[in-house]
């Protein structure tokens, strides 16, 4: 990979920090009127997901990370790997548990997810912002409260647990925001 100088830093640039691929979230130049300039950057480590600040001397360069994102449809899991396919080329990629992390609970067959590849290997899977999943279990006894004062927990087909309004019942399909894990609406 190419090296990037601090002048090339901008949001979204992928660089290597401590042997891990990272994406730059924010970049700020800090320079005294008289004296050395620095770049203070906020980065997200792409494997651990950790966000941290790092300071560089302006003019220094950093190794770029060979990171790309690709949109692939989720096919199935064999228990060890989760398989995704490019709907245009039919090329398939298998991601492991580590790449999936918590997002495994939002995988819906045929939904298009964003797969982050580092040196060609999947390191992260981002589900669509909204997914639709069926409720397999929730307390059926509570009815009548349509406003939803605090709701109740509901288990979805993937095992995810979401708080839903009291009127929502087993067997119904709901729309969930995967970024917050919050119930959005019923799907009719």
């Amino acid at each position: 990979m190419a090296n990037y100088s601090t002048n090339e830093f901008k949001g979204g640039l992928k660089i290597m920090i401590d042997g891990e691929p990272c994406t730059i979230l924010e970049n700020e130049m800090v320079k005294p009127g008289k004296g050395q300039a620095f770049n203070r950057v906020k980065i997200r480590k792409l494997i651990s997901g950790k966000v941290l600040e790092k300071t560089f001397k302006s003019g220094d360069s950093v190794e770029g990370a060979d990171v790309m994102e690709t949109d692939l449809a989720y096919l199935y899991t064999d228990g060890e790997f989760w398989h995704f396919m490019n709907n245009d080329t039919f090329e398939q990629i298998a991601a492991d548990e580590k790449a999936l992390g918590d997002n495994v609970k939002w995988l819906v067959e045929n939904d298009v997810c964003t797969i982050t590849l580092w040196n060609g290997n999947p390191i992260a899977v981002t589900p669509p912002n909204f997914v639709e999943l069926e409720i397999t279990d929730t307390d059926p006894g509570l009815k009548g409260d349509t406003a939803g004062t605090g709701g109740k927990p509901a288990t979805l087909t993937t095992g995810a647990v979401v708080r839903v309004p009291l009127f929502v019942q087993i067997g119904e399909v709901i729309k969930v925001d995967t970024r917050t894990g919050e119930y959005v609406s019923r799907v009719k």
């Binding site: 050395q36 203070r40 300071t55 001397k57």
Partner: peptide, 19 residues
């Protein structure tokens, strides 16, 4: 990382002062 490369005092004082 910055400190390891430095051979003079002033850039490091400026770094600590700024940050």
């Amino acid at each position: 990382d910055i400190a390891d490369e430095e051979t003079t005092i002033d850039p490091l004082l400026q770094l600590l002062f700024c940050m």
